Simulated assay, not measured.
Amino acid sequence: MTAPTTPAVFIHGLWLHASSWQPWMDLFRESGYDPIAPGWPGEPATVEAAREDPDAVANLGIDDVTDHYAQIIKDLPAAPVLIGHSFGGLITEKLLGQGLGAAGVAIDPAQIKGVLPLPLAQLRSGLPALGNPANLHRAVALTEKEFRFGFGNALTEEESDQLFAAYTIPSPARPLFQAAAANFVLHSQAAVDTDNASRGPLLLISGTADHTVPDVVTRSTFKQYRDSIAVTHLKKFEGRGHSLTIDHGWKDVADEVLTWLRGCGI
């Protein structure tokens, strides 16, 4: 009898469409996993459709998205590997803390409650959404210039513009407001159960040139797990920006994730 295939659930963050995970899904399928990359609640099936209907995802909050993926995970035949980027990384941490998932990988994860560093580059990256309080209830799109600063700063302008054209979509601003206010809100939706000792192993990944989630933020996130005996690891990619899951070097990151999963026996 053939052993069941381990599912892998890919969770994207703000401003990227779920289709941005396609190269990862192909690689994970070849590596023996059963991958899926569901979009956020209401997210249209294509980049073009998402750009034409920004209101489809407007006003979604962190818990809305987390609950959406939690239901998807519960309907799977086996506990999956969870792999998230940016706010998808934060959601991965939340789901793993809830005991969902065999293991989690949070790549350049948005800051969770308890993380204090707030570098200037991160503030500037969030300004397209946070700069107008009325955006709380809206979906916001990036310009090419904004994408280059927040995602493509470690790339050539040509590659950054190509990725912008291929994958960017309007995204709800609410999660950014929730994360920014997390340390001032008692029951913040950006809170994660970092003390859960029975959760699956977690790998945090940072790019040292990331403007949107600077390395210092990911290192501070790693420290939030210091009181848990569950496996938690941190991996840095030197000179990589927030685009590290979709740019020309994506496979270096994906191969590292696969090696780590094998080391965990998953």
Rank of each mutant, 00 (worst) to 15 (best):
T6Y: 01
I11M: 07
W15R: 08
P23V: 08
W24M: 05
M25W: 02
R29D: 05
R29S: 13
Y33S: 00
A45V: 09
T46S: 14
V47Y: 03
A49N: 10
R51Q: 07
R51F: 07
E52K: 13
E52G: 13
G61W: 00
I62F: 06
T66Q: 01
D67I: 09
H68C: 11
A70H: 07
A70N: 06
A70L: 05
L76D: 04
P77V: 00
A79V: 04
L82D: 03
I83G: 00
S86N: 02
K94W: 06
L96N: 08
G97I: 10
A103F: 01
V105E: 02
P109Q: 12
A110Y: 03
K113N: 14
G114W: 00
L120I: 12
Q122G: 14
R124V: 15
G126N: 07
P133R: 01
L142M: 08
K145P: 08
K145L: 12
F149V: 15
G150T: 14
F151K: 15
F151E: 12
A165F: 05
F177Y: 13
F177D: 12
A180R: 09
A182E: 00
V185Y: 06
L186P: 13
A190N: 08
A191R: 01
D195C: 02
G200F: 06
L202Q: 01
L202S: 03
S206R: 01
V216E: 12
S220K: 04
S220G: 09
Y225K: 06
V231K: 07
T232R: 10
E238P: 03
G239N: 09
S243C: 08
T245F: 10
G249W: 03
D252Q: 15
V257Q: 00
W260V: 00
G265V: 05
